[in-house]
Nucleic acid binder design. Structure first.
Lengths: 216, 216
DNA sequence: GGTTTCAGTGAACATATGTATACTCTTACC
DNA sequence: GGTAAGAGTATACATATGTTCACTGAAACC
């Protein structure tokens, strides 16, 4: 028999009870993502999600107040994994040279590993639910901010004011997102071509950067 | 009394009967566009559309077999007006210089005059209805093709192979679409800033074009 | 002028939705 | 070991949906 067990409420955090709750919560999120591969967010119903997750409609409310709340969590999750991946990629010392190919490859890998998440973002970025749109746009802004900061390290943009750097960062993010959206909605056989195109487009942008005059 | 009336069936094309039909058809399309400002296409119902248009649900079938068919017509209409506007802009001899600012302005004007159409395109480009996505993507490809052809006239891309020109054209279209999507979903007071950003991004692309080596 | 055509109506259907309420039964706590 | 908590259930509701069918009445045709 176990001699000691956590006694105070604060220490008894994750026990079997909470574990199971978290499990079906994740089941709901995954079920929603699965449905979102075929339909847009505001066309899938609470009941569909619970059906797909294998629970009763009313049990949904034990986890989320709303479908919208579920959607906002999906946004967080989608960007969470992506953010980690990019941060890791940036800290790679080999990143300095061949930054374009490596960055694109990072996004491609993420599309492969988290296809549903990326499709969700592409689909709902301009989708029919205001708060979800806003949440996604906010996350993309944060990305652009981080990227703009990182760009300072590159000699190419030396002397640029922060406004120009942001403009550049937003362009790059836009091209990346477009590439991802392109990939999740196309025949995998055509992916190599599409990836190369994105790389060339970013190379073109880089060349433009070299010629940019920071003055006004 | 009217002495003569068109007699043959072929000449009796547009009479009061067909006119009225066309009228309520347009009413249906406009109603759908209105609803699409707030929701995504696959979340609005046939009944909603007819309610908004002021007719009976069953009358819908006199005009479209399906909501999907209605959606495909919306895609055509949305691009129809845009295509005309751009063709006009390109034929303008003043276009040669200051092409960037004029192109962007053309898109901005179109966003102002056909906001609902542009929002529809932005929303459904990656939306939940396959055939509509495909239709929009096809239209955008046609745009890129036309643009790639037009670009040949600019000395900047002299000596480029058609593949590189297409890559460039697709980048430009992407930036334009992103700008439009940005405008239709933001506070009008912020529009000037956003327009300027798009212009600067296109200028950056142009600079990149100057430095691009057509070899390989 | 009489007949045909057909855009729009009205009622009915089977089925789906979000949510409220009262419940069960396992786990966590003292 | 007895009790409280709470994740998931079962039932029920008012309301919405797409589509059917038989209809009406005005315009179009001969």
């Amino acid at each position: 028999m176990p001699a000691s067990r956590p006694r105070t409420r604060t220490h008894t955090r994750a026990r079997s009870r909470d574990e199971h709750k978290e499990l079906t919560r994740q089941a709901l999120l995954r079920a929603a993502l699965r449905l979102l591969s075929r339909n847009s967010f505001d066309s899938i119903s609470l009941r569909e999600v619970t059906r797909e997750a294998g629970i009763t409609p009313t049990a949904f409310y034990r986890h989320f107040e709303d479908m919208e709340e579920l959607g906002l969590v999906l946004v967080e999750d989608s960007f969470g994994s992506l953010r980690g991946m990019l941060r890791e990629a940036r800290s790679d010392p080999a990143m300095a040279d061949d930054a374009i190919r490596r960055s694109v490859q990072t996004v491609v890998n993420h599309v492969n590993d988290h296809e549903a998440h990326m499709r969700f973002i592409a689909r709902e970025r301009h989708g029919g639910v205001r708060r979800i749109r806003r949440a996604i746009e906010r996350e993309l802004e944060l990305f652009a901010n981080e990227l703009a900061l990182d760009l300072s390290a590159f000699p190419i943009v030396h002397g640029w004011d922060s406004d120009d750097r942001r403009m550049l960062a937003e362009l790059i993010v836009e091209v990346m997102v477009a590439a991802a959206a392109d990939l999740v909605d196309s025949d995998p056989a055509t992916h190599p071509t599409r990836v190369k195109r994105a790389e060339r487009q970013l190379r073109l942008v880089t060349l433009g950067t070299l010629a940019w005059r920071p003055k006004r």
